[in-house]
Amino acid sequence: MSRKASPKAGGKKVFLRQLDKLLPLIGVIVLLSLWEFSATSGWISEVLLPNPIATISELWTIAFRPEDSLFADFITTLARTLQAFAIAALLGVPLGIMLGSYERLYRSVEFLIDFFRSTPASALIPMFILFLGITDWNTVVIPAFAAFLAIIFNSAYGVMNARQSRILAAKVMGANQWDIFKDVLFWESLPQIFIGLRTGISIALVMVIVAEMFIGTDRGLGYRIIQMQQILNVKDMYASILVTGVLGYCLNMLFRWIEKRTVHWSGR
């Protein structure tokens, strides 16, 4: 512990501040206790909600077992999410930047983008099934489409709302159009592009899970969750839900970390 001007009071304060770091755990503990209480008190039937310890030990057993492991489904879902995201980002960022650079072009497709962005992508699932058939393709194409809209929208807005001051500064230093684009405009819009990417990966995961639940695939966390519910293997279902949550949380954290490192100047 670091020594401050008045060691006693300072030490106590530092200690309390250290304790503050544990605050996020309180919510988790409260939830687990509530879960434990409702399961063991018989308030909710064990058939619907097994207690946390049983769920976690189930998670442990099924995680890496040779057949039908949770890990395999986890990898499938992760791979689909990343594929969908990659497609969406590779198309969405360049197209968005292009639309943003030519404002008249953006205005002419603005309504379309806004309309489809406001339409829940899940409403389009039947349409995609018509076109793609009941195939594994849906579990990547539908999420990619939904993520693409968020990414193209934010990228275009990032470029259009770029502040003029740095562009002027580059101009007066003799930069040509291409210099301005690659040295200023792109970087100016990067924080907003990242908002699009982060939204995009969240949407991609949501849509992968939904698609896995309802569209002819026999792998993935979404498929597993609905399958286990159907056969009333609730321990496995809750374990799968937990893992899905962990996946979403980790993806979010990963993106925040990348964003912080890439857009290091944001907010300064």
Binding site: L168, M173, A175, D179, D183, V184, R268
Partner: peptide, 20 residues
């Protein structure tokens, strides 16, 4: 609002030479 925060101060100073 006119320095480029995404590159170092050194690269900022050298920027006019770069575009030339």
């Amino acid at each position: 609002e006119t320095l480029f925060p995404w590159i170092s101060a050194l690269d900022n100073i050298a920027y006019p030479l770069r575009v030339q």
